[in-house]
Design a protein around this nucleic acid. Structure first.
Lengths: 210, 210, 210, 210
DNA sequence: TATGAATGAGAATTCATTCAT
DNA sequence: GATGAATGAATTCTCATTCAT
């Protein structure tokens, strides 16, 4: 791996991009290392010189691109904010912007999440668990829970909201794939906002009357 | 196909179970017919005596298990009910019971939905389209929408609720798989109920005060 | 085999016809016993009850239909004829008529001649050799060789003539197959006659002047 | 294909020979790539590293050996010759020499002509059409037809002669195979010459008297 | 460091033949 | 005699990985 990292940036990115697009397009098992080396314009042997096998390559690519996303995310998040919905809205906005900026990455990351290949599934799940705990912890640390309606807490709220927003986004992606049209990110923003409005109205005390 | 159907039940189920678990575990492309015949304890040739190819086998297994689910569902649903939350509660209950009875089925069915294999994707989508229209229509036909809070309608409500319940169930399954413990279905029921309570309180007019 | 022969004629012919058409259409190796039993409307097991394997079936069918042809042939040949060209003309005529009457048979027989499957090739060759010797002997026994030009004998003459006529017929069949049109048997007769005329003119003494 | 062509000659020939003999012996469909790799002493994967599939391999082998034949042929033919029998004699001689040098080639090429496998038949026919037109045209262009007897033309003559010579050669090969002795090429040359003498005497004007 | 030829296990599918009924 | 379910070796082709150069 140090071998790979001491490569000049241009070549490194050629390889990472090639792997990303192949894995995103065909999933782990179906992705062809032949295709990757062809696209990256390197030899077959070289790929296996840098990465000991397909699995290691996949996980490296995963960590690399997840890293990029997280960096973006934490750079932009205001860590002092205590209002739950402000945090959530900002998170959703960042995610949707990343989605727009790097559509391939998210496709790759979200399909990685569905991988069934043994050895891959476990590794991805391990990373996700850490990630969720970590980012939940970050978000929940300073939350002012006093504003929630009775019987509601920040975790429940986050769950409902993130499952709903994810559910909605997934459905739009599926629809787009089915109809073979590009995803309409503007609509995504607007609709996600409308779901957030709804939850703010219903999960915050006195929200109904506003 | 008649060949397969005139088999004695025990052998038929051995084959269906073997196929179900292999397809659920590895997806269509990666599933190995070798593995299926080994698990079903039949010869390689025999599988192709019953099903002309892997695709036909997959779709047969899909239709078979979807059939089982639907039968259960429509047998138990009261078709005259007009109260949204009663319908939803009943649906969730039925689904969770099916989940308990055939844990593999839902995994298989929901992963089938994501298949990319050409020829499979189209067939599954065709079936899903019919199914979704049919069952949504069934549920929504008689709904009394006057009880929802302002800005809410039955479709939005169904979406929020089903995404949330699904999100919750998925998470519990993931946790169980990660910790290598069996899924606690009782907890699942109780928690799902508590989410439904919450939504009833917040999405129905005057719900807050009850 | 006695088993097969003590079958009622109708069933026997159903089987023979089915085998003939499948072997003629696809050759020995590619012919499917499945197809044969389906066409003959008998069960798989029964075929192998009558014939111990595919090879035996093939050779039985071969002998059966060659037998039919030979019977026809010897029924019509005048055994006292001593004039070479009269014999040849009659032979060619009979052959072409048989060809017209049972096109499937000849296709089968002539393709059988080209079989490469081990065990089949040898058997067919053995039969052909016998057949050729036998019929050559028949034809040559009484030939009046005095009318041939110098340096020519009956065997050479027969060879040249039969190779030419065969070559011509083969070419027409190939052309027909290539252009996907039926063979024009009338043209075949006429052209074959014209080649025979030519040989009579050139291989018989004084032929040129007639 | 460049991959295959940049192989060292020894290995290339091992593969070509193995393929030639397997295809010649069993035909396209029945030929086993397993057998070819075994005979060529290469691994299974390697064959498909060079040729994308069996069909491409077959056609490559075909073109390769046809190429060898044609090269030999056109290198030796005197293009200015106008005398029909000189051309024919030279052609026959070349062919018989090729037959002696590469006994498998002609069997392979002539059997390729009879292939029924879809995708193969068409390709071979395409190549043959070009070839026949081209070589017939070459031979017939300059022929002096005035020397033929009445009612004879160059095409008829070529047909008779080539069918006869081919018929003769085939028969000798069959005999040799049947008796399991090597083909006697000297006898082949001599006899073919004697048939050509005969035809020259009988198809050329005044030939009889010489 | 870099190459790409070479490997061989494993994939889906076919089919003559057997055998319990 | 008659059935057709059952077998399993054989088919072509793919692909991650290795290794000599």
């Amino acid at each position: 791996m140090e071998k790979f990292e001491s490569l000049d940036q241009e070549k490194r990115e050629r390889i990472l991009n090639a792997a990303l697009s192949e894995f995103a397009a065909r999933g782990y098992e179906q992705a062809s290392t032949n295709e990757i080396v062809k696209q990256a314009e390197i030899s077959k042997g070289l790929l296996f010189h840098y990465f000991k096998n397909k699995k290691q390559l996949f996980l490296y690519v995963y960590d690399y691109y997840v890293g990029i996303c997280l960096e973006d995310y934490f750079k932009r998040m205001n860590r002092e904010e205590r209002d739950f919905f402000k945090i959530i809205r900002e998170s959703v906005a960042i995610k949707l912007e990343l989605l727009k900026k790097h559509p391939g990455i998210f496709k790759f990351i979200s399909e990685a999440y569905l991988e069934k290949a043994p050895g891959i599934k476990e590794e991805i799940e391990k990373r996700n668990l850490k990630l969720v705990e970590y980012s939940f912890a970050k978000i929940l640390k300073n939350i002012d829970e006093s504003r929630f309606i009775e019987g509601m807490d920040a975790i429940k709220a986050i769950n409902i909201i993130s499952w709903t927003v994810e559910g909605y986004v997934n459905e739009e992606f599926k629809k787009a794939r089915y109809l073979d049209i590009p995803v309409d990110y503007d609509k995504l923003f607007i609709q996600a906002e409308s779901y957030l409005d709804l939850f703010e109205r219903t999960l915050y005390k006195g929200g109904q009357t506003t």
